[in-house]
Each structure stands twice: as structure tokens, then as C-alpha cells.
Nucleic acid binder design. Structure first.
Length: 466
RNA sequence: GGCCCCUUCAUCUAGCGGUCCAGGAUGCAAGGUUUUCAUCCUUGUCACAGGGGUUCGAGUCCCCUAGGGGUCACCA
């Protein structure tokens, strides 16, 4: 049985580094038919917020990573932690420390002045005397005085941390609330974790947590410390690198499977494979294959993956996804052709929405450069003749109808395709570039085509007059 | 600063002592397809951080240097 977890602290939104560790935990649990749990680390009442918790849960829902059971809130478990703290106190494995915050700060300063590593000096470790008055004590756990704390990391290998690096750290604050390293160890053990996959910024918490495991007689899980995701230039990932908030990717028009595929390939690979369906990730993922080195965020590759997944999505799904971007196609009679065209050309849903809107709406203005390039020479007359041709044509429904209409038109006038193509393009969508003209005309229909052509002709005449 | 981790193309990576004059992907460049743009296809571009060892043989093992990162709270 494999049990894993993702344990965010609700101090902000879920960022992509967090999503990646969550994904790794999720994959490893699901691959082994085990359990994946969610735990909200909200022991610091002053810093966490309900909105942050909501945002994290929302992100999980968006990427469709399901967790087992209800999320566990550490704030609901203070009684439990207190009972273990009492137990350690009774067993002499933890003790009250009466040093005030100010004294502690002073000690730290002195140590730094002597170029020593700041460290609690253990002055109350074996204290039997009369406690000083007026000080609410903290509880500290007894860490080993000498030797090393050794553990096996599934990514970094054997880690041996000198006991000197681990002091008697605080497990309960003076107000009685438990601290992070204590509750994490207690919860991981009690929730039955077999594998803990987390960011390597937690590497130095591991020996501390091992002290707790051992004091309480809990069985150690396997640890995997995954390197962080760096921003462009190898610096720390920040908002400057685009979206850090997972939900920003949704808003920017990314598909969740593209984001997940992108993240799974950051620090992990399976031969030369780039595209992974959820099933394939589940089939191949193993945390011991995660690279030991940090990787850099690469937005171009994400974009590429996103366009791949858009191309391979059904029109029905795209249509419903596009509603978030203000484009309603579910009941549109030209839905299929519209989506077939644009899913090939767009990298994000947002871009798709913009381009579809551009075709569906009569142009409000014309691109200056396009006008200059397209409307020279006989362009206006050609456009007018084309309008007559469209008006008098018999069958005009499918793109092929419009296409043969254009073919016979250039044939009759003995002109190149560009002579009508460019002005027509400007008339229809207001600029050069864009999808096939026959497709556009078929989508908007004969009447709208004529309307747009006439609008441009009118616009040009007015412009000439002034 | 102490301790720890990391180092293959611009980027993500393959490589687990010989099959590597280092492979794939993204990006970029060129060409083809296209009435345009995009897609797509083809080709090209680009790397073992540096220096010592070990070995018949090193991208792969060891050491040193440099660079990057993490961590040193009554935060999580």
C-alpha cells in the first residue's frame, strides 16, 4: 500500500511548483492503487486564510486531481498534537524552555558576532530549578547531542546530517500551539504516509522531523526531495515568469492536461517521450526517476503542448470551454467548421476566442498597413465586381461553393488570386492574414459577406473624398 | 558566512564505463505546402562548466575549483 499526500499551507494561491509536487504524489499513489491525501497546514492562525484554502481546492478541481477522503485541517487537530506533546514531556523527551524571545534574539546575535552558527544552547534541557516568573515557556524536543541523523532520500541518495545542525527545536509555542515540524511528523505518521514527496526546500526539515518520529516511536516513510522549478535565467520563479498561480493558466486559456504534461516533464522523463496522457503518466511515473537537478520554467514548451492538446480536443469540449472566454458556440450552426479551423491555428483558448470573435463580428476598423497594401490599383473596382458575382451566384453554402466562385472570378478577370484575396481579406476581417477566405465566407454567409464588402467600399470612398 | 544539494545544446531532457565525432523535444533559421497568416512536412543550428586523477577506455566513477540553488525562526 502506498499512501502519499500534498500538504500546502494556505498563505496564497497554488503555484505551479506546488502543483507539480502534488502531481508527483498523486501519480505515485494512483499508480500503486494507493491513497492520495490532502492536508491543509494551517497551524499559524495569523497567516493562513480561508480564501487561500478555497483557491487551492479550486485549482485541484480544475486539473481534476482527486484526493481520497476530505482534506485534513491541522487547525482541527490541536488537541491531538497537545496530547503527544504532553506524552513527550512526561517521558522526558521534551522539556519546557523559559527563555524569552528577547533572550533568544540576544543569544543569536552573540553567536553571529562570534561567527558561530545560531543555535539554541540547550540551557533548559536538564533544568530542575525554580522557573523564572512571568515567562510563558515553550516546549522543546530533545535532539541528539552528537552523531548524525541519516536517512535515505529517493532522489538525493543517502543524507547524513550532523547532530550539530539540529538543535532542540520548539514543538509548542508559548501560547501552546504546536509548530510545523512537529505536526508534520505527527500527521504524516498518523495518516499512514509511506512516501513523502516534497520540495527540496524541506530537506533540512527532514532531520528535525525524524527526531519527532523517533521520540514518538513512529515508522519513517520514504522521502523524496524534488528540486525546485527555477524561473527564466535560473533565478527563483516569480510572477515575472508569467503566471505563477495555477488558476492564471486557466484564465490564460490553457488546458489542464497541457499544464500537467508540461509539469511532469520538468525534472522527470521517460525516454524521449514528450506527450503523456494521464494513463501514460500513471503507467510510467516513479519518483526515484526524478532528476536531482533543478529545472527551469519554459513557457514556449507549455504553449506548444497546449496547442497540441487543443488540436486533439473534441469540438464539443472546446465549445463548452470557450464559453468562459465569452464565445458561445454550443448551439451555433457553423460550430464544427469554425472549431475545425481554429483549433489548428491557436495555441490557447483565449487566442481562439479572440480569433473566432474576429470572424463572427463585422470589422469595426481596418488595419492601416493592410489597407495600404491591399487597396492599391484596381482593388476597389475588383471588390465591387466580386460583390456582384456573390450576389448573383446560385448555390452558396459550403466553403467549396465559395472557393469555386473565387476561382471562376479570377479566371474571368484574368487576375491573380492575390488581387481579390487581399482586399477581400481586409473587407471580411479588417486585416491581412487569418483563415481561408472561402471558409470565412461560408461561416458568415452570403448576406454578411456582401455587407462587409460594401462596408469597406463605402469606407474607402469616404476616405478618398476627404 | 556554516552546512547541504546541483552542473549535458538558449530551454526541457536521453545517456546508468565501450553501441555517443552525444539522441529526442521546444525555440530559432532556411526550404516546401498555402490566395495570406497559422498549421503541417523537410533540413539545419546548438551542449558533456574548468582542472586533475582512476581505467585499456569517462558525459558516465573519485577529488579540487568555479558557478547556481537550498537552509540556518515561538513561518510553513
Amino acid at each position: 500500500m502506498v499512501v502519499t499526500r500534498f500538504a500546502p499551507s494556505p498563505t496564497g494561491f497554488l503555484h505551479i511548483g506546488g502543483l507539480r509536487t502534488a502531481l508527483f504524489n498523486y501519480l505515485w499513489a494512483r499508480r500503486n492503487g494507493g491513497e492520495f491525501k490532502l492536508r491543509i497546514e494551517d497551524t499559524d492562525m495569523s497567516r493562513n486564510s480561508a480564501e487561500a484554502t478555497k483557491a487551492i481546492l479550486e485549482a485541484f478541481e480544475w486539473v481534476r486531481m482527486d484526493y481520497d477522503g476530505e482534506p485534513v485541517y491541522q487547525s482541527d487537530r490541536f488537541d491531538l498534537y497537545r496530547s503527544y506533546i504532553t506524552q513527550l514531556l512526561d517521558e522526558g523527551k521534551a522539556y519546557y524552555c523559559y527563555m524569552s524571545k528577547e533572550e533568544l534574539d540576544r543569544l543569536r546575535e552573540e553567536q553571529m558576532a562570534r561567527k558561530e552558527r545560531p543555535r539554541y544552547d540547550g540551557r533548559y534541557r536538564d533544568f530542575n530549578g525554580e522557573p523564572p516568573k512571568g515567562v510563558e515557556p515553550v516546549v522543546r524536543i530533545k535532539a541528539p547531542l552528537e552523531g548524525e541523523i541519516v536517512f535515505e532520500d529517493g532522489i538525493k541518495g543517502t543524507m547524513a546530517i550532523s547532530a550539530e545542525e539540529v538543535d532542540d527545536f520548539i514543538i509548542a509555542r508559548s501560547d501552546g500551539t504546536p509548530t510545523y515540524n512537529f505536526v508534520v511528523a505527527v500527521d504524516d505518521a498518523l495518516m499512514g504516509m509511506t512516501d513523502v514527496i516534497r520540495g527540496d526546500d524541506h530537506l533540512y526539515n527532514t532531520p528535525k522531523q525524524i527526531v519527532v518520529y523517533e521520540a514518538l516511536g513512529f515508522k519513517l516513510p520514504r522521502f523524496y526531495h524534488v528540486p525546485m522549478i527555477l524561473g527564466e535565467g535560473g533565478r527563483k520563479l516569480s510572477k515575472r515568469d508569467g503566471a505563477a498561480d495555477v488558476m492564471d493558466y486557466k484564465r490564460a486559456g490553457y488546458l489542464p492536461e497541457a499544464l500537467l504534461n508540461f509539469l511532469v516533464r520538468l525534472g522527470w522523463s521517460h525516454g524521449d517521450q514528450e506527450i503523456f496522457t494521464m494513463e501514460e503518466m500513471l503507467e510510467h511515473f516513479d519518483p526515484s526517476d526524478i532528476n536531482a537537478s533543478a529545472s527551469q520554467y519554459n513557457p514556449d514548451k507549455l504553449l506548444w503542448l497546449n496547442s497540441h492538446y487543443i488540436k486533439n480536443s473534441s469540438n464539443e469540449r472546446l465549445a463548452s470551454l470557450l464559453e468562459d472566454f465569452g464565445v458561445y458556440l454550443l448551439a451555433h450552426d457553423k460550430r464544427e467548421i469554425l472549431l475545425d479551423i481554429f483549433k489548428e491555428r491557436c495555441k490557447t483558448l483565449k487566442e481562439m476566442a479572440e480569433q473566432i470573435t474576429e470572424v463572427l463580428q463585422t470589422p469595426k476598423e481596418y488595419d492601416e498597413k493592410a489597407l495600404k497594401k491591399a487597396m492599391k490599383g484596381e482593388a476597389l473596382q475588383i471588390l465591387a465586381k466580386f460583390a456582384e458575382k456573390v450576389e448573383s451566384a446560385e448555390e452558396l453554402h459550403l466553403p467549396t461553393d465559395y472557393h469555386s466562385l473565387m476561382e471562376s472570378f479570377v479566371e474571368e478577370l484574368q487576375i491573380g488570386f492575390g488581387k481579390i484575396g487581399m482586399p477581400l481579406r481586409v473587407a471580411l476581417i479588417g486585416r491581412l492574414g487569418g483563415p481561408d477566405l472561402s471558409d470565412v465566407m461560408s461561416i458568415i454567409g452570403r448576406e454578411e459577406t456582401l455587407k462587409r464588402v460594401e462596408k469597406l467600399i463605402g469606407y474607402m470612398k469616404e476616405k478618398d473624398a476627404s
